[in-house]
Amino acid sequence: MSQLGRVKQWNTFARCWHLFDAAWQNPLECAPSIEKYLKGLNKPIYHPLVDCGDHVVVINSKQIAFPGEEWRRRVYFHHTGYSGGATWTPAWELHDRDPTMIFRKAVYHHMKGNLFRRVVMERLHIYSDSNVPEEVIENITNQIPPLRSIPKTLGSYSKEEIEKYPKIIDYPEDFILSKN
């Protein structure tokens, strides 16, 4: 067996740990790709009854992004079971209370409801920032590629870069420049 093939076999039969940076990612979009690693769908030995999934460590879950007005419009429903016990919480309010909950719910609700779902969810480790315990970090061997690129702010560019960037319009001839 070749060296590469041997490593592939190790990775298939071992429980690997993957890292995912959730900064500026939509949790609803990246739920399917994370589910793939949690269940082991990327492995050739996959079968629904074979427990071959990997661990996924999600960091920076506080910095997830939603499109447009989704933070206000998206509502999470809960019912206590008593009469009048229904509550509707907007996404931003839920995120204030627990910054990991929206991500966990997104992955949980994307998976099919069966007896394995809660077992698979135990392998998902979500952290609101980049402070991860060392016993978790030392296991990580792979990083899941982000789906969205992080947008660059104007402040991150230097003054020279902004000045030398090609200009589309010029000021009109009788324009009064205001000082910054």
Partner: peptide
């Protein structure tokens, strides 16, 4: 989306994480 915070009035909050309610969280647009 908080991408042009350096272009703002002098008395405004330039740090996006200090905004009120839902405005402090990251948003992108289509």
């Amino acid at each position: 989306a908080g991408l042009m915070c350096s272009l703002a009035p002098a008395n405004s909050k330039k740090d996006t994480t200090k905004r009120k309610l839902w405005k402090k969280y990251n948003t992108y647009f289509d």
